[in-house]
Amino acid sequence: MRLLQYIRVNSEGIWLNGRFSALPTGDWAEALYRQDGIQYPKFFKMDHLCRIGWMASELLLAGENDRFEPRTDRAVILFNRSGSLCNDTQYQTTIQDPDNYFPSPALFVYTLPNIVTGEIAIRNGYRGETSCYLLPDFDAGILVETSRQALQDPGTRSLLTGWVECAPGQSDDLLLCLVDAETEENWNEKNLLQLYRYGHL
């Protein structure tokens, strides 16, 4: 498999294909959304997990040709540790108040961590596989293996895959990669771990 594009985001900054930039202060995803002049009002309805995953995918995919043409051959397969805990906590706090036991359905839907894969699929017209898995920690081996195994579906030829983690009181932690089925073995555990640790190859 071949690694085409990658983006790493942590408390220290953003590395887009190895090029570093500082993390905007405050809500970095919203700051970048405004800075890049993106027009996508649904962004403001999203919860934090969706916003960061979606915004990172925007940066990753910005240069792609025919980007919004509907396609079925690209899968979105994301992993994290905390699921939708940020939004779950907020949801529980809301329904704790008896006057708010039936909050807006828009709040409940984000208590599912796979919604971020759906948001990316909707934005880009991806009608392929979308999957969300939880692991105790970032695990380069499992991520690479899962993406290889996803190609057992003959309809899948490329993947947007990686780690999108947020938890209450913790820094956001993301690594998103665009990979395809072409033979060039730069998509491996060693390189993925290097990207996670250092943001570049």
Partner: peptide, 26 residues
């Protein structure tokens, strides 16, 4: 609260040494 926690308890209950995978696709 995390399903990851429960998955690890489940795997360890049966003595399994691997990292269990949680599928969270609604």
């Amino acid at each position: 609260v995390s399903p990851v926690w429960s998955a690890e308890r489940l795997a360890r209950h049966f003595g399994n040494p691997n990292i269990p995978l949680v599928v969270s696709n609604a």
